Computed example of a mutant assay.
Amino acid sequence: MKSGEVTFSFACLITFWLCEAAEIEPLVTAALVGISGHMGSRALYQFERWAQTRLDNATT
């Protein structure tokens, strides 16, 4: 498995888990998973920024 495929798979998996936790409709989840997979490492960067913002807000 190439590194790009690993990044794609990881981005898709994280997106799926977040959608499941937020109880997002299956068709919307499918679209978001596809978009994040296409984005690859860029999607992971966006997840990191989102998490950092949430953690910063939780500690202040």
Rank of each mutant, 00 (worst) to 15 (best):
E20G: 00
T59G: 05
E20Y: 04
L44K: 05
T7H: 06
T15Q: 15
T59I: 11
Q52D: 10
W50K: 07
V28I: 13
T53H: 12
L27K: 03
A58Q: 10
N57L: 04
A51W: 13
Q52Y: 02
E5N: 10
V6Y: 07
A58L: 07
A11D: 15
A30G: 00
L18D: 14
E48L: 11
G34Y: 02
W17Q: 15
S41L: 09
F16L: 08
L32W: 01
Q46S: 13
F47E: 06
S36Y: 00
S9V: 09
G4R: 09
W17I: 08
Q52S: 07
A21H: 01
W50N: 10
A31E: 06
P26C: 03
A30M: 00
A43Y: 06
A51C: 02
R49A: 11
T60H: 11
E20F: 00
T7C: 05
A11N: 14
N57D: 08
I24R: 02
A11F: 01
K2E: 03
A58S: 10
G4M: 06
A43C: 10
F16Q: 13
M1A: 10
V33K: 01
E23Y: 09
F10I: 15
A58W: 07
E23S: 12
L44G: 07
A58M: 04
C12V: 04
L18V: 12
K2Y: 01
L18N: 14
F16W: 09
S36C: 15
R42C: 02
R54K: 05
L55A: 05
E48K: 08
R42E: 11
E5R: 10
T15G: 08
G34C: 12
Q46M: 05
H38C: 07
S9T: 14
E5V: 09
T15R: 15
